[in-house]
């Protein structure tokens, strides 16, 4: 801008122009961030009204009495913790989530490896078939499982009878019912692990395997020293993620057993539903579902750490 032909102008102009440019830049940036904020506004409103506010409202609700007329402090939490049923609920939620996630992860990684072995052009159809459990809405496929677990004339009991065993009361006995709910969850959740791991497997560079082969590594050594370390981050994120979802699981238990027999399959979500909606004690139900929070928060912290690390890697 300052062409420097005349000295006084040349001295003055850059400063002025600079100031003007700075202010227009500032106005531009301001306008830009205003528009940006406006574009985000629907999201902020939605999340604030229907996620953040209810979350805090849940804390307030959990400290009221059943008729929601009186403040009882931590009374609901203390009441729940003393109740035998609720102790069972804590135990079952942890059992359900941890067992199911372990099996989903193990089966998922096995199937992903098998898929990785077969030629790429065949993978699509196999993947499509294996993803079917995950595609059908869970509430609907659980109905089928319920029918298959039917005690009198069920699909499974018929096979057992044909093989000479006696019928099993699938959903009628505590531990067997717990086992059934976990089986259904594993069936439903494994495909998700499979596609995540398959994608991660494909991203491991071939050179690493070649280098390992030259160094004389066998198949197992490659798995433990190349594949798993390379996939560590994505495995961790997927497991934590699935832990959160499985912990909050509702559909399977609600439909299959409704929490029975003798409350031996209730998890936090179904118990909160029974207490809060069916028995009409919303504060107690809210207190019950808030017990999920610490576990979810810890898992979310680790997921977030993994995700930010990942985004940094992408940015780098």
């Amino acid at each position: 801008m300052a062409d420097g032909t005349s000295v006084p102008v040349g001295v003055m102009t850059p400063a002025m122009a600079g100031r003007r440019r700075a202010s227009s830049m500032k106005r531009f940036a301001q306008r830009r961030s205003t528009i940006a904020f406006l574009l985000c506004l629907p999201l902020i409103l939605l999340v604030a009204c229907f996620v953040i506010y209810p979350a805090f409202y849940a804390i307030w609700l959990s400290m009221l009495n059943k008729k929601m007329t009186q403040f009882v402090g931590l009374g609901n939490f203390a009441f729940l913790l003393k109740r035998n049923t609720f102790q069972l609920v804590i135990f079952q939620s942890c059992l359900f989530a941890i067992t199911a996630v372990i099996f989903k992860a193990l089966i998922g990684i096995t199937v992903a490896h098998l898929m990785h072995n077969i030629p790429g052009k065949n993978q699509r159809i196999w993947r499509g078939l294996l993803l079917v459990p995950w595609v059908i809405p869970l509430a609907l496929s659980t109905l089928t499982w319920w029918w298959m677990f039917d005690p009198s004339y069920s699909a499974f009991n018929w096979i057992l009878n044909e093989l000479g065993f006696s019928s099993v009361p699938w959903l009628g006995v505590g531990w067997i019912a717990r086992f059934c709910t976990i089986v259904v969850n594993v069936w439903y959740g494994t495909p998700f692990f499979m596609i995540m791991y398959l994608a991660a497997l494909k991203s491991v560079p071939d050179q690493l395997y070649e280098a390992a082969a030259i160094d004389g590594a066998g198949a197992w050594q490659k798995l433990f020293f190349v594949t798993l370390p390379m996939m560590r981050n994505i495995i961790a994120i997927t497991i934590l993620f699935s832990l959160i979802v499985t912990f909050a699981e509702f559909d399977i238990v609600r439909i299959l057993t409704g929490g029975g027999p003798q409350d031996m399959t209730h998890v936090f979500a179904t118990y909160a539903f029974q207490v809060g909606i069916q028995s009409g004690d919303i504060p107690l139900g809210a207190a019950d579902s808030l017990f999920m929070f610490p576990i979810l928060a810890v898992a979310a912290f680790f997921v977030l750490r993994g995700v930010t690390r990942r985004s940094k890697e992408i940015a780098a």
Partner: peptide, 14 residues
């Protein structure tokens, strides 16, 4: 990461 089963009771009130 906040599941529906944590929020459905306060949302019932809302």
């Amino acid at each position: 990461l906040i599941p529906a089963s944590l929020l459905f009771l306060p949302l019932f009130q809302i």
